[in-house]
Design a protein around this nucleic acid. Structure first.
Length: 192
DNA sequence: GATTGGATCGCCT
DNA sequence: GGCGATCCAATCG
């Protein structure tokens, strides 16, 4: 299985978001190895995208988006949940892809414990859920998604990944753009 | 120093 | 489909 390198992430954000579907996200926590198939994500573009954290310029929170591609960007949302992103594009273009849902593969028993849920569909079907399931927090922010605790792999699913596009979830600005992507007919997607 | 609102989830109907 | 929980960060003064 081929690992995705810097070159994969250092491309146009929308393309990276589309191609990440069907790839495997792996998180080697200190105690457990987690993995799952990326089945839903969203593209957040640079300073011209009103829905992106980077729209209003560089701040302490979004600083990672302004760095190189292939870096994990984690932030706290609504005071209760973490969201995991990976940075994309060029160093001078602050963009990232939000991982919204995974089809769980490894570490499932610990995911169930962390989520207090037994149904596989309740473990990683949403950005806050998958972070909670794998114990992702701010310690991952700024770490490499190429040679750090998080890695992505290409399982070579060939033509099995049919992509659908839709509007991004939860935005008040830039809500109309079709920048959310998910695997058609996959039951682990958070919203159709 | 105070205010405001958010890339969510779970429980309710 | 609607709403409350909950708190940090950004913005403004």
């Amino acid at each position: 299985m081929i690992q995705l390198g810097f070159d994969f992430f250092a491309r146009e954000t929308e393309l990276v978001a589309r191609e990440l579907l069907g790839k495997i996200m792996e998180y080697n926590s200190p105690w457990v190895k987690f993995s799952g198939i990326v089945v839903e994500d969203e593209a957040y573009l640079g300073v011209n995208d009103p829905g992106s954290h980077s729209f209003r310029g560089k701040t302490k929170r979004n600083a990672v988006m302004f760095g190189p591609a292939g870096i994990s960007y984690v932030y706290l949302i609504y005071g209760m949940y973490y969201c995991y992103n990976v940075t994309t594009h060029r160093e001078d273009i602050p963009a990232a892809v939000l991982i919204r849902a995974l089809q769980p593969l490894e570490g499932i028993e610990v995911m169930k414990k962390n989520r207090k849920k037994e149904n596989l569909k309740d473990l990683c079907s949403g950005p806050g859920k998958l972070a909670q399931a794998m114990g992702i927090g701010m310690t991952l922010n700024g770490t490499s998604a190429v040679d750090g605790p998080v890695k992505f792999f290409d399982p070579d699913l060939l033509g099995e990944v049919k992509i659908r596009e839709a509007t991004r979830i939860g935005l008040t600005q830039g809500a109309e753009s079709l920048l959310r992507f998910y695997v058609k007919d996959n039951v682990f997607v958070s919203r159709k």
